[in-house]
Computed example of a mutant assay.
Amino acid sequence: MNIGQASAATGVSAKMIRYYESVGLIRPAARTDSNYRDFSDRDVNDLRFIRRARGLGFSVEEITRLLSLWRDGERPSREVKSMAEAHVAALDARIAEMQAMADTLRDLARCCAGDERPDCPILADLAARP
């Protein structure tokens, strides 16, 4: 199937498919006589796997490792579980950081009159903090 068909079948844009190919996340697609990419069923399955992994926030490097583990029928599941748990811990840390940012902004917005006066605790806080 060509890149447009692969894109439609996987939900991965043609631009991202070319990117994944350029960084080695997927193998280079076979080429037709007219030099169009020709994606196999394996390529499409890989793209679906990548899309799902990206949707869960895994990095390209992590997905490279996950793809390798997925293809290895003899792999121990403990490595995959370890990667997933590390990713969850990183997500939890990011969530806590973002919650703290939201709490800070909520407090600053509550202190701001939001009227015609130039006084603004939000801007004052931004200017005061490194």
Rank of each mutant, 00 (worst) to 15 (best):
4 G>M: 00
4 G>C: 03
4 G>H: 08
5 Q>C: 10
6 A>C: 03
8 A>L: 04
9 A>K: 14
9 A>P: 03
10 T>V: 03
11 G>Y: 04
11 G>Q: 02
11 G>S: 06
13 S>G: 07
13 S>V: 03
15 K>R: 10
16 M>V: 07
16 M>T: 14
20 Y>L: 03
22 S>L: 00
22 S>H: 03
23 V>N: 02
24 G>W: 10
24 G>H: 07
25 L>K: 08
26 I>C: 01
27 R>I: 03
27 R>W: 00
29 A>L: 07
30 A>M: 13
30 A>K: 15
30 A>L: 13
31 R>L: 05
31 R>S: 00
31 R>E: 03
32 T>A: 08
33 D>L: 12
34 S>Q: 10
34 S>C: 06
34 S>G: 13
35 N>K: 04
35 N>S: 08
36 Y>D: 06
36 Y>C: 11
37 R>M: 07
38 D>H: 15
40 S>H: 05
41 D>T: 09
41 D>C: 01
42 R>M: 13
42 R>F: 13
43 D>K: 05
43 D>F: 01
44 V>I: 15
45 N>F: 09
45 N>D: 12
45 N>L: 10
45 N>P: 00
45 N>C: 09
46 D>T: 06
46 D>S: 15
47 L>D: 09
47 L>S: 07
47 L>K: 10
48 R>A: 04
48 R>H: 07
50 I>W: 02
50 I>A: 06
50 I>R: 04
53 A>C: 11
55 G>N: 10
56 L>T: 03
56 L>Y: 11
57 G>I: 02
57 G>W: 11
58 F>D: 08
58 F>K: 11
58 F>S: 05
59 S>T: 12
60 V>N: 09
60 V>E: 02
61 E>G: 15
62 E>L: 03
62 E>I: 02
64 T>F: 10
65 R>W: 09
65 R>C: 06
65 R>I: 11
66 L>R: 00
66 L>V: 04
66 L>W: 02
68 S>A: 13
71 R>G: 13
71 R>H: 14
71 R>K: 14
72 D>Q: 08
72 D>W: 01
73 G>E: 15
75 R>D: 08
76 P>W: 02
78 R>W: 12
78 R>F: 09
78 R>G: 12
78 R>I: 06
78 R>P: 00
79 E>W: 09
79 E>S: 11
79 E>N: 13
80 V>T: 12
81 K>D: 14
83 M>T: 05
84 A>I: 12
84 A>L: 13
85 E>K: 11
85 E>L: 15
86 A>K: 13
86 A>G: 09
89 A>I: 04
91 L>N: 10
92 D>T: 05
93 A>P: 08
93 A>E: 12
94 R>Q: 15
94 R>P: 01
95 I>V: 15
95 I>S: 14
96 A>W: 08
98 M>D: 11
98 M>C: 12
100 A>T: 15
101 M>G: 09
102 A>M: 12
102 A>T: 10
103 D>R: 14
104 T>P: 01
105 L>K: 02
106 R>Y: 00
108 L>T: 04
108 L>F: 07
108 L>Q: 12
108 L>P: 04
109 A>P: 04
110 R>F: 06
110 R>M: 10
111 C>E: 14
112 C>Y: 05
113 A>D: 06
114 G>Y: 00
114 G>W: 01
115 D>C: 03
116 E>A: 12
116 E>Q: 07
116 E>Y: 00
117 R>A: 08
117 R>L: 10
118 P>L: 05
118 P>G: 01
119 D>W: 01
119 D>H: 08
120 C>N: 02
